[in-house]
Nucleic acid binder design. Structure first.
Lengths: 364, 364
DNA sequence: CTGAAAGCGCTAACAA
DNA sequence: TTGTTAGCGCTTTCAG
């Protein structure tokens, strides 16, 4: 489809040149073996343990000695071998942020970005690292399960956007500390998790909508096998009370396209539609497009509210009234719970529910 | 700002209970020590080496014995200790996908998603794993440098979206194999990279625009310290030839907001504007919004083309004519080059330039 | 085909 | 404060 165009100073088709020995690693005259702690110790004229102390904070080492060691480290270009350290310590210093989602969508959801940033920042404070991994399909999930349970990381934070029973099942029987971001359907009591109160949030935004609009209100939901999809629908139902019309419910899958399609169906069934609760901003963007294509003005003819306060919310015309989720706080709490688990405290599963807040814009 | 709302079955504020011993790891009667390869060997009644062979493919092991070993593995719930394996093997089986970008933006760019997915898939084929890491600011970058050079990964793929000299500098002097995605300004000759031909792509799309539109054509560029920002402007200039108007150039930063702002400035200076090349779809989305706010119809009054074919391209009304980049192929090539480096082949830096293709939609 | 043994590079406990 | 010494759990020769 797309093809290699030009190549500067290279010969990509000829498997770029010059082998220089596949295994100079441990051959004879150490043609630049990576220096070890012993090399440093020897050069600095100290014991191995002393070097270890220095590279681990330098406590209990005479300043002069520390100085010498650091010098040796610099001249040798030494850096620790992480694998060796992990083995000796029994921990890795990294935790995984697992996103069980097709990468396409993953990178469209700003919530993930905020999660990632928050985790990353907090972990760095304690000298650890965040690894982000994804699992879009079952195969990836298996591979991921291997990865996680095999000791690559000290713990995991799981952002599940759909049912993930296989992975959860597997992790549950492993020794890996982990906490779920979002309510894990079917594992609510067994696992630790932190989630937003989808039901309440949906109730809030739909109540707002219902207060501004007379006439028929419909909804495009998320997937009904997910806890978020389900609860947002519940919240909508509760907010609407008698005005709730089961015939004005369309099920989406969080995608823009499904939002558009949902509204087309709704409009066909109920041309009198005046208000719309769409369970995600991305779907809402599709919904607005469909509305406009059908000649409806937003919000004059039909008012719409979204959910998530994602980038799509302000990308659309008019900008969406929506709910903003406490992502950062979720991240912090999740990490705290995880650290408790990592610290070896055996504790009952912890469940946290956080509130979202209404963001008023111009789509209502 | 947002607050803990409710808590089910948990006591988050009291640092959730019950310590059960911080160090039962190696204490006395192995209160469930993680089983090792020796445990398996003993149970299966074979030597340690045999178990190792089995868990590494089982070649050169009698089927019966293999059977026995696998059984022992199952009953013990054994899984390899990755750190030990890494140490023994001298490699980790994972490669990093480094994105030097604020996470906000990161997760808005679908290109990253496609990169990630492609890497992930390919690596899995060879039994390896992809780790995604980000570096938004200098501090993170340092931390990341530590991480990468310390032996956590076998190699790295770097998606740089702005000048990254410090990180590149540092990596360059390390022993870590890596290749850059996108042209690394200032390191063009020293490092291996694969990039799209921004100049040519911009030329293509702007030529298309110029062919459809009479009158003034302006542009909102990317950041001019990035190679993409620069080259897209170059391509635009070349395509426009005499029609290029230096006064109709606004510099953006890839963000939606900057696209909007750029167009506002342009419109103020040149109300006669008839065509617009915006160097990214996200900015183009902002541009379209600004245009509409100013009462201009797209494309009737002013035609606009974007770049990237990102999600924003179809989220906007009208859908954007834009350039689609050969992300997947870039990923594949990048990985291939990286693997050559990892394999220990010492080779001159490799540079690949790939072509983008025009996607016609309705914004022109 | 299989067992034994020698590391991989580092940490941490223990003496000194 | 320091050096020494056991491991950490696995892979990989090397005999057999």
């Amino acid at each position: 489809m797309q093809q290699i165009n030009g190549l500067l100073e290279a010969f990509p088709t000829m498997r770029y040149g010059v082998l220089v020995g596949t295994s100079d690693r441990k051959s004879a005259a150490s043609p630049r073996r990576r220096p070890t702690i012993d090399d440093v110790a020897r050069l600095a004229g100290v014991g191995r343990g002393t070097v270890s102390r220095v590279i681990n904070g330098g406590r209990n080492v005479r300043p002069a000695v520390r100085e010498a060691v650091n010098e040796a480290i610099d001249t040798l270009g030494y850096s620790v071998n992480q694998s060796a350290r992990n083995l000796a310590r029994g921990s890795t210093g990294s935790v995984a942020f697992v996103i069980s989602e097709r990468e396409e969508r993953l990178f469209e959801d700003p919530n993930f970005g905020l999660f990632a940033r928050t985790f990353s920042r907090e972990l760095r404070r304690s000298g650890r690292h965040l690894l982000i991994t994804t699992a879009g399909d079952e195969e990836e999930e298996n591979s991921l399960g291997d990865y996680l349970t095999v000791g690559h990381v000290d713990g995991a934070l799981l952002a599940l956007t759909r049912d993930q029973e296989p992975l959860l099942q597997r992790l549950q029987t492993s020794r890996l500390p982990f906490v779920v971001l979002g309510k894990p359907l079917g594992f609510e009591r067994a696992l630790s998790w932190v989630a937003i109160d989808d039901e309440k949030a949906a109730f809030t935004v739909v109540s707002y909508l219902a207060g501004k609009v007379d006439g028929a209100i419909g909804t495009v939901t998320g997937p009904l096998q997910t806890s978020s999809g389900l609860e947002r629908l519940e919240g909508c139902r509760r907010a609407l009370g008698d005005r709730f019309r089961p015939d004005l419910v369309e099920t989406g899958d969080w995608s823009l396209r499904s939002g558009r399609h949902g509204v087309e169906m709704l409009l066909r069934r109920a041309p009198e539609l005046r208000g719309l609760f769409v369970a995600s901003d991305l779907m809402a963007a599709g919904a607005v497009a469909a509305l406009r294509a059908a000649g409806r003005r937003v919000p004059e003819d039909v008012a719409v509210v979204g959910f998530d306060d994602s980038a799509a919310a302000t990308m659309v015309e008019p900008a969406l009234t929506t709910m903003r989720n406490p992502i950062e706080q979720s991240a912090l709490e999740g990490l705290r719970i995880l650290d408790d688990q990592i610290a070896g405290r055996v504790l009952p599963p912890v469940h946290l529910v956080l509130n979202s807040e209404l963001v008023e814009r111009s789509s209502v």
